[in-house]
Design a protein around this nucleic acid. Sequence first.
DNA 1: GCCAACGTTGGC
DNA 2: GCCAACGTTGGC
Length: 154
Amino acid sequence: MKYWLVKSEPEIFSINDLEKSKNKTTCWDGVRNYQARNYMRDEMKIGDPVLFYHSNCEVPAVVGVCEVVKEGYPDFTAFDPKDVHYDPKSKKEEPTWVMADIKLVKKFSKPVTLNEIKSKRSLCKIPLVQMGNRLSVMPVGKEEYEEIISMSLL
DNA sequence: GCCAACGTTGGC
DNA sequence: GCCAACGTTGGC
């Protein structure tokens, strides 16, 4: 089992939007980065825990936990010319882009802010705080995952 | 295959 | 809104 962190801009899709979604589940579409795609295609498995992170907003923070409920499958938004994520290079017979479905497990009563994460020595190695990391899907170590969970309970 | 220009992300 | 850090593109 692997642990993950996904980023979303709350202005576009927040954890509250996820909570309101059918079955509290959403497809993680629109990822147009090869490394992030490879993670979803090759390594994300059903049942993997996923931290949900709000980026590019007033208080960047991990705001809840999800789990993977559907493993990598073609991102159909790439086939739709009207979709903002349309990619003419992705063919139905040979999709370039892949997504997974995630379901909300728990919204943190207390979000774990980027500041708090940065202030922990034990968390200084997670990809999120390493400079210039702009991946929207990234792996997190088990210990780091558990540390963030425990920080949300304080 | 190099590399400059450009676009995007995201913290601040 | 600024800017640093990347990823991508395209000329050569």
